[in-house]
């Protein structure tokens, strides 16, 4: 058994009301290095909230979250920012590419805050874009790309810094089936070469690609 990357112990996240919303209500979850986990569940069940907590963008209101075995509840905001930059990659449903910057700049953005040596940044970004099959569009504006291409740029941005955990929230939610398949192929490839992935999805086809599936409903998690 490989070492756990993510360890959640009785994790809760309550949004203050009125009435208070128990978005996560005592979640226990262990994700080991190299695992590919999909999270399914009805709308409003707390999937995005879970992902934000996992990505250190949000703090739990109770329970414990250990990242690479280190408890994160007591870490400073600065240290959490460093962990986000170095250990975690995000892929969002909305792509979140900067519309006024080139494709290359968008990928480079992730290298700025994560300590990648300045001299290697452009080479790494170009290499990542090549791996997602977009080396011919490096200077294009993201607004001129198709949805699938945009999401592949976002994947390149998420992995360019060499994270240990990739978090994706509905990565195919805005894509047609062909584009979805291309993104899922990328995920398979990343998984096969050792990356740990947690992918939130509505789509059973996407969910089926994962090695392990969990279901969340009303803030509670269950293995499928």
């Amino acid at each position: 058994m490989s070492a756990p990357v993510v360890e959640l112990v009785g994790l809760t996240r309550t949004f203050p009301g009125p009435p208070p919303v128990h978005a996560l209500d005592g979640v226990d979850l262990v994700v080991r290095a190299g695992e590919y986990v999909s999270v399914v569940g009805p709308s409003g069940s707390g999937k995005s909230t879970l992902l934000h907590v996992l990505g250190l963008l949000d703090r739990p209101t109770g329970g414990d979250y250990l990242l690479d075995g280190v408890p994160t509840s007591t870490t400073s905001e600065r240290h959490r920012a460093r962990l986000r930059g170095g250990r975690i990659g995000f892929v969002f449903q909305q792509f979140h590419l900067l519309p006024h910057r080139s494709v290359l700049d968008n990928v480079l953005l992730a290298t700025l805050y994560s300590g990648v040596p300045r001299a290697e940044r452009v080479d790494r970004a170009r290499a990542a874009l090549e791996r997602v099959g977009l080396d011919h569009r490096v200077d294009a504006a993201p607004t001129t790309l198709s949805g699938g291409e945009r999401q592949r740029v976002a994947v390149a941005r998420a992995v360019v810094t060499g994270p240990s955990l990739l978090l994706a929230d509905e990565p195919t939610g805005n894509l047609d089936s062909v584009s979805s398949a291309a993104v899922m192929d990328l995920f398979d490839e990343l998984h096969a070469s050792g990356l740990t992935l947690v992918v939130i999805t509505h789509d059973p086809v996407v969910s089926a690609r994962a090695q392990r599936r969990v279901r969340i409903s009303d803030g509670l998690l269950a293995e499928l």
Partner: peptide, 20 residues
């Protein structure tokens, strides 16, 4: 499957001295 050594992957080789 051995525990994959951290950062021995195509998408992000490790670096010696980083720049903040």
């Amino acid at each position: 499957p051995p525990p994959p050594p951290r950062r021995r992957r195509w998408w992000g080789r490790p670096w010696r001295r980083g720049d903040g």
